[in-house]
């Protein structure tokens, strides 16, 4: 399933943290909640709709539980953004028993078009939560910027 910030009914949001930023993805499935959390990560840096889908990166890793998997997922994206000097706007995620496989699309940072506001240093364990609340999956944490 492909999740686009603009056209998918799941959603992302930011929640307040004094010094940093809280990111939250919400979806009907855990895959979708993770994908939306990734859009929220991009939205801390730039407007996600401004990111073109020129190149893609594959990610594949496992963890012991869903919360640690979210921490790993966000940090993997932060790492790929940092070493490739890219931003991502488009996320395909599949999670099977704490094993995540994803393809993410994006482009090189363009400071004029993206006007990136902050560089994300890392995802944190603060407010880290992955849960199914009444049939809706929520995936969230504070990111250090």
């Amino acid at each position: 399933m492909v999740h686009r910030a603009a056209d998918y009914p799941g959603h992302w949001e930011h929640f307040s943290h004094m010094a940093d930023v809280g990111i939250r993805g919400v979806g009907a499935t855990v895959d979708e909640a993770f994908a939306q959390a990734a859009v929220a990560l991009t939205a801390a840096i730039t407007e996600p709709s401004k990111v073109r889908y020129d190149d893609s990166v594959q990610l594949d890793f496992a963890s012991t539980d869903l919360e640690t998997l979210l921490f790993e997922w966000l940090n993997a994206l932060i790492y790929e953004m940092a070493v490739r000097k890219m931003l991502f706007g488009h996320f395909q995620v599949h999670i099977d028993d704490c094993h995540l496989q994803a393809q993410v699309w994006g482009e090189r940072v363009n400071r004029f078009r993206h006007q990136p506001a902050v560089e994300v240093k890392g995802a944190t364990y603060t407010e880290l939560r992955v849960a199914n609340d009444d049939g809706v999956w929520v995936a969230q944490c504070i990111i250090d910027v």
Binding site: T68, I78, Y79, K121, G122, Y125
Partner: peptide, 25 residues
Amino acid sequence: HQIGTEFLKDMAQAAHQHGIDLPDR
């Protein structure tokens, strides 16, 4: 940033191994 990220995970495991009960991960 990367060292901070990686050791957060490493130390969470170490704290557990050494019986340190963390009030916050």
